[in-house]
Design a protein around this nucleic acid. Sequence first.
RNA 1: GGGCCUAUGGUCUAGUGGUUAUGACGUCUGCCUUACACGCAGAAGGCCGGGAGUUCGAAUCUCCCUGGGCCCACCA
Length: 782
Amino acid sequence: MAEGNKIFGENKNWDRKLEKNTAERLNSLRWDFSPYSEKKIFSIDTPPPYTSGRPWHLGAAAQYSKIDGIARSQRMLGKEVLFPIGMDRNGIPVERYAEKKHGIRMRDTPREKFIELCRESLDELEKEMFEILKSFAYSADFDRVYRTDSEDYRKLTQSTFIEMWKNGRITRGTRPSNYCIDCGTTIADAEIEYKEMETDLIYFYFKIKDSGQKILVASTRPELLGACSAILVNPSDERFKDVINKTAITPLYNKEVKIIPHGYAKTDFGSGAVMICSYGDYNDIMIIKELQLTENIVIDTDGKMNENAGEKLKGLKIKDARKEIIDMLKEGGYVEKIEKIQHRTPICDRSKTPIEIIPLDEYYLKVTDIKDKLEELANELKIIPEQHRQILINWLKVSADWPISRRRYYGTEIPLWYCKNCKEPYVPEEGKYYQPWKEKPPQGAVCAKCGSSEFIGDDRTFDTWMDSSVSALYVTKYLSDKNFYEKTYPLSLRTQGIDIIRTWLNYSILRCYQLTGKLPWEKVWIDGMGLDEHGEKMSKSKGNGIDPTIVIEKYGADAFRFWAASEALPGSNFLFSESRLQGSSKFLTKLWNVARLINQFGNYEDFDETLLNESDKWIISYTEKLTEECRNSYEELNSFIPANKVREFIWNVFAPHYIELVKARAYGEGFSENEKKSAVYTLNYVLKRLLLLMAPITPFITQTLWEELYGGESIHYQKMPEAKKYDGNILLLGDKIMEFDSGIWNAKKEGKMSLREAIKAVVPPELKPFEKDLRGMHNISD
RNA sequence: GGGCCUAUGGUCUAGUGGUUAUGACGUCUGCCUUACACGCAGAAGGCCGGGAGUUCGAAUCUCCCUGGGCCCACCA
């Protein structure tokens, strides 16, 4: 206590320096989870943050601080809380990061070496992320961090894949992929750049079958004419009303294609009629899928035209084929005109070559046949806030089978081999981590079809969402501990951002349902986005990301956490604002000074509550009502309400009215010993309660004040008190007290009196029980 | 371009059919009142984005428009 007084004496403001004094004790608190606890289990599936070159900006840190508030409040509400922390470490972002950092290209680097470089980067980046999390006292189980690229985790991803394979949930199909002809590989969306390039827009005619009519089509990709499977015109376009739904004949190829009315065709571009080819661009993919048109591929992976393009074009490179076919169209008299246009072209970010869309053989996870069931599950799930359910439902409605294989290096390997003789896939047993690109299949592997024992490993990896979509299974020990799994699955809660509903939420439900037949959680808590001060999403490309460490160093972690909790209701977007953050920091200083004052008076813990003064009964009733509101909100995973209610109470009621009302009594000036004790007891009663109510949101200041004033076990091991019965009538009288105070203050102000000066005033009859305190507070004379 | 969400004093936010619309930050005025000047007290500031409708009555419900956000797709 003596030391405590010293801390109070020297520090009039709460700041980062004081937080750092407490940080070590705060971060060393442990909450070991036991599935056998008698307490109610509350298990949380938290997002494993992506460990990549992507900066961990303030919006993300704010979200994690709110999630931590949920875990802390649930502990204080008496639950046994499973609060794991994972690191998502698979996939393209880290590959790109390593490429940039070392100035290398993934496919020019030996795979083994490249993986090693990725892992080094991940370890460095991960360290920084742990530091950030600990800087604001994230209270997850850091002793058991999981990593999605660990052998154990990848084993789970692979085992669940094998299980699904055996259940017939995996299919093969071709998928239009980005392909760079110069690099000779598929490229990821992240590796695509867009560049304005000048291109020829060719206007040429198709004949209409069984009539003398023609239709004029404009295309930048005439070499795909052989792949044309439909012509689209806008249904409202008067120019085409005579030919809609008729059949056109492709020039040169003489194939029949339908003229289909579709909103995708814009009346003001080109001729208004667009030909759909497999595949000119991504819209073609959408349209071909939507209208169930047949694809006809005319370009091979070497960038040359194939036999489907016809004798004259076969073997030509795309550019040459385009020239050739334009000449052929001209010769045939089909061409109306050629326009030069600026065209935003997708190009490979390395070779700067325009990308081609070419179908490749990929694995899919079946979705379409269980869409209805998934929608039913999505409706059963409790979603906070409710309004975000629609986003999930909308995606479920349009979801197709999920392509899960990727031609990348740093990811969980697809655990398959293929028979050298007959190409039949060989699937190993679950329960082991496999690396088919460098390992032989398990000993004794024999092809089920032809009996051969020679195999080639699949060198692809999974889409990263294949890993993260089973986080709910990993943290509940689906594979490794049956008892644990049964006690913890389904989990109580999934927490995540609104931006990954289509991916993480959607795929997790899909995968976990397919494997367990159940929803993975009871509730999902979906937070909004942290936006910059202009309301735009923080991102590396925009350069508007704000570094949370700088903000935390400047204003303190609790100010940051309090700001995050109090700024917006869960689910709403929140804009970064330095001045509001400052406001939070001022509030904490206010609380600090309230505690400094109360600390001076000591405490009388054994005071008999039946002897309480009326003013004290008033503020205690107020406190109980506040407790009720806060507890209810915490039960509903909402810290916005507690943060704001507590701030309003402290700043608008407790400090200006109650404390001023009883200050003289607490000092013992002109009051009996019992009256003094009653005030001091109540001041501590309320402060203690406020600290408990705020502990989940602001762990540093509450830990510090609790240590200084009340000692004993950490505040974070305490239970959130239940609200006692309170007197509604006295609360109404309290409002009158506050009105009376304002009246006096106004009168003194108008009379240019100092607040200490004596004033003549009449205390209204209903405030008689408070008269002595009021007279002391305002220095009222007769 | 498509889907969804959203719009409250200078800035942010509560409120979700019914008397004078909540609070914070900022602004202005006056105060160092033995916890706090990162404070105290007081004040100004809002046709609740625009338009139409439902209703006895709308910030609150419906439709349209406009701005913003998220995800998806990116113009033959």
